[in-house]
Each structure stands twice: as C-alpha cells, then as structure tokens.
Amino acid sequence: MRAVLVVNPKATTTTERGRDVLVRALGSEVDLAVEYTRRRGHAAEIATRAAADRVDVVVTLGGDGTVNEVVNGLLAGGRTADEAPALAVVPGGSTNVFARALGLPRDWAEGTGVILEALRDKRYRRIGLGTADGRFFTFCAGLGLDAAVIRRVERARVKGSTATPALYLKSLFAQFLVGSDRSHPMVTLERAGESQKTNLAMAIVQNTAPWTYIGGRAVNPNPKASFDSGLDVMGLHALTTPATVRTAGQLLFGGEGPHGKQVVTLHDLGEFTLKSERPQPFQLDGDYVGERESVKFVAIPGALKVLT
C-alpha cells in the first residue's frame, strides 16, 4: 500500500520529534512518502499529485485548513470517492473539528494509533461533503459574523498570537461590539420550490456536528447535522445584544440547539444559495476565504473515503 503524509510544519500541537515518530510508525505499515507544506494552497497541490499517481491513502498532519486543502486536491477534476485516494487524519491543529467529528482522539499520538489500526484492517467510511461555489468543505461554512471573527483571529495570529479559546472569545466580542453592522440584516437564503428566508444577519452551514469546540465543549447550532445527510443551516434574524446573548447561551448550554423568533434552522438540504446586499466575510472549515455577495451550496453524498 502506498501513502503520502502531508505535514503542516506549523501545526500547533506537534513537535519535530513527534513528527519523526509518526513517520516511522506509518512507514512500518505502508510505502510512505512525506511532503511538507510551504504555503497556503500547497497541501492541495500535493494531494492532487498523489491522486494522479494513484496512491492508496493520503494522511494529513495539521489542522482543519490542511484537511480542507487536501480534500479539495484529492477530489479535483471531478474524482469520485472510488477514484480518489482515501483520507486519514492525524490531528495536529488547535481545534481539529473534522477529526473529532469523525470520533478520532484529540491527541495526535492516539490518533496515529487509530489510523494504524484502520490501515491494518482496511477500515474505511464514506462521508458526505458540502461544496460552496464548487469548493469542498468537510464540516462547516459561514457567512457574516463567524467568518468576521475568524478573520480577526487570523490577523492576530499573523502578529504572533496563539489560536486559543480566549483569542476567539476576545475576537468575537470585539467584532460584535464594534465591527458589525448589526442593525441592517442583509442575507437571504434561496432554494428551489421553497419560500425565501430573508433579513438574516448571519448564516452558519454545517456538514456535520459539532460546528466547533471551545476547549472540550462542543458548540452545536445544528445538532442534527451529519456526514450521512445533507447540509444544515442556522440563521439569525437579529444581532441585538439580548437576542445574541440568549442564542449564545443556547449554543453553549442547550442540547437541542438555538431556538426562538430570531433563529432560523433548516435540516438536510441538498442545494441552496445565500445572497447578501453587500459583500460579507466568508469562511470554510474555519479558514477565512474573503468576502462574498452570493454563495451556492450543494451537498455531495458519499463524496470521500476516510480511515476511522
């Protein structure tokens, strides 16, 4: 069996010694090539080459951004799950939502053990993915406030800050208080044959649950979201302080997800479009990817094989 290990050398929870241990462990099971990413987009290029070379498995050591790039590389050119290499994920980022949603351990060493067992047993699972204007995402997308928060976090990291829960909360409060036009909701959700959902201040799209984690606590706008169904959406009509505080409390402490007059939730959608009156911050799998006025979403069932 041939495999490629894609390593993000800036992964926050691993060391050079740990990476060496991983390489030796994987190399004992498969014919392994190791590639280190050097820039944004490089992981996608590596994965595209690996798929063209017909390797059996591509393993990522990095965060959710590295996983997203590799997935898009594996499935580039319209490859199906049967045509593309399988994906294995060793958690190495600060949050690792995708790996944890698959049920993998948070610790990279324990995660490596699971992957080695899956390789020996040839244990695969097919999962559905979402696309946003043709780009795949594994667990979430967002238009509006959450993407603006991620943009703030990424700018802080460029200046040397570490991506901690405290940084995300600080960025959320700053964006909410001074960075958002909360009085004029501008987002509309459109889907064929259904009435529009208008005057949304923000929208969160999930391909699985949870949406993210704060430390060890799962945050679940759409608790029913699953790799085995379509896409789920939560939108907010208003970002007033009382409504937002109430929704935040439901997100953190409510098992059934947010509810109330300001909340719109939709489950198991196959295709829809989010439109805005002016460009809004947009994120995919926790990475800020610019501003958008319109994004078309499509659920792709059984799009990818993963080792679990």
Rank of each mutant, 00 (worst) to 15 (best):
T13D: 03
R125T: 08
F253T: 10
S229H: 14
A209F: 15
E35M: 09
Q262W: 14
K275R: 13
T138R: 00
A50H: 09
D107C: 08
L87Y: 02
V71C: 00
R106I: 04
A238I: 09
G286T: 03
Q250E: 08
D53C: 15
N220C: 14
V295P: 04
Q250H: 05
K10C: 11
L167G: 03
A44I: 05
D146F: 09
A44L: 08
H237K: 04
A132H: 03
T15V: 07
K197V: 15
R217M: 04
F297A: 00
R217K: 10
L189R: 02
A84S: 10
A52P: 13
H237F: 09
V34W: 08
I150E: 12
I204G: 13
G179D: 05
D228A: 09
R24N: 06
A156P: 08
F253R: 08
G27D: 04
L200H: 01
G113K: 05
R152I: 14
R38D: 15
G286C: 11
K224C: 11
L26K: 00
G111R: 06
G134L: 05
G286A: 07
D133K: 05
V233Q: 01
L236E: 02
R292E: 06
E83G: 04
H259N: 11
V30G: 05
R100G: 00
N207R: 05
R182Y: 03
F173I: 12
M234T: 04
R246F: 11
A88E: 14
V7Y: 00
H267E: 14
L116T: 01
S28K: 15
G179P: 07
E29D: 12
Q206Y: 06
